[in-house]
Each structure stands twice: as structure tokens, then as C-alpha cells.
Design a binder for these strands. Structure first.
Lengths: 99, 99
DNA sequence: AGGACTGGTTTGCGATACAAACCTAAAGGA
DNA sequence: TCCTTTAGGTTTGTATCGCAAACCAGTCCT
């Protein structure tokens, strides 16, 4: 029967705010903080902490640079992050097939 | 562009443990506590509190009866619960289509 | 009687999501 | 020049929540 279990669901990605972030990053493959801020609709604090979480888990790479005199934070999905997103998608779609 | 937002994701259903519960209930339309305990693999306490949450949100109806001398807790999805699950499914599938 | 099992519920705690408050530096106005 | 505002984030505080351990009422066994 092989019921779906909870362990199969990646909690890092499953969190809605992070799911949005990661999905957007997978579409553009590179983005800055303000872009994500706009497209996700998250608050700055919220976005910042979720990005940090994604970084410590190795899903996202955060790099900082200056654009003229303004600081800029660039985000991109790591290979691991991309893989995990794909796995998550498959897990969830399997779930739906049972429904 | 109409980006998906966080508000669209039903947090009640989104929680993995509850998603499992609700999916199983949608398949059988009626189940007792011990059946759910087995198929979901949740701990008793965890199952109990999630069911209570689903009840207070009006997604699940909890009724208790005696089967011989043993107490038995019967669970079933309410119409609202069934509708919400369907909406959740659609929301998530729309999300995947963008990916 | 008393110990173990059934069928759950309640309690305690650790983790987490979230926004408000904060911070540093640059730009603009008086 | 000083002072206020804006940009671009980060840190802090809080309230919620998921989870399992502990608990509980009732039944069965011996």
C-alpha cells in the first residue's frame, strides 16, 4: 500500500513563504532581495529570516554586493535547492494522485 | 501577473499531519480513530489534537459512540472540509503549473 | 483484587513564523 | 551644515503550534 508518510514532506520547502521564495528563484535563477520582496509579498523581516534559513540549509546562496553605492543582496538557488524543490514537487503530486 | 499569495494557501489543510488526515477521510468518508492512527502513522496525542483543530474549524465532524463496551470515535469530513480540500488541491496545482 | 490493555485527552516544551522595532549608510531639503 | 527621509536589510519579541510524554477512565484477564 505504501502510504505517504510525513517524513517524505520536506518541511523546509513546505512552509508557504519559503515555497514561494524557492519557486520564484527557480523561475529566474537569480534575484535580488527587493525583487523577492515584491513578488512574494512577504514583510522584509520575514523574507530575511526565511532566506537565512534557506541558506543555512544549503538551499539558497546569498551573496552581497554594492550596486553603485547601494548595498544589494543577490539570491540564487543552489543545485541542492533545485533538486529538493523538484523532489518536493514529485512527492506532492504523488500525494494528489491518491486523492 | 497575479502571483500566488500566501493567503491562498489554507494553513489548516497545509499542515502535513492534517493533510494526511483529511486526504484519508476524503477517501473513505468515514473512519474511526484507530484506523486513522494506523494509516497516518501519527502518535495518538498528535492525531487527537489535529482532529480537534479540524473540528473547531468545521472541517471534520467528531462523533463518539460505544461499540459494545468500547468507546469509539468516528470522524468524517464535513461538506466544508471536503470543499476546502478541493480548493487547496486546485491552489497547489496552479502553483505547480507556474513552475 | 490488581495488573495490563484500550481508546483516547491533556500538559509541557521546543521550534518557528511573523512583524515591529531597529540599524547603517546614502540622498535630499532648508 | 545639519537634519530628515529613504533604501536595504537584520534583530528582537511574541504568540502560535506541532509533537510526544504523561495521564486518565474504563474494561479485561487471572
Amino acid at each position: 500500500m505504501n502510504n505517504p508518510t510525513l517524513e517524505d514532506i520536506d518541511k523546509i520547502i513546505h512552509e508557504p513563504a519559503r515555497l514561494l521564495i524557492v519557486m520564484h528563484l527557480s523561475l529566474v535563477e537569480k534575484a535580488d532581495f527587493l525583487y523577492l520582496l515584491a513578488v512574494t509579498g512577504l514583510s522584509k523581516g520575514n523574507l530575511s529570516t526565511h532566506l537565512q534559513k534557506l541558506e543555512t540549509e544549503g538551499y539558497v546562496e546569498i551573496s552581497k554586493q554594492f550596486l553603485g553605492k547601494k548595498p544589494q543582496t543577490i539570491l540564487q538557488l543552489t543545485p541542492k535547492g533545485a533538486r529538493k524543490l523538484l523532489e518536493y514537487k514529485i512527492t506532492m503530486q504523488n500525494l494528489w494522485d491518491k486523492l
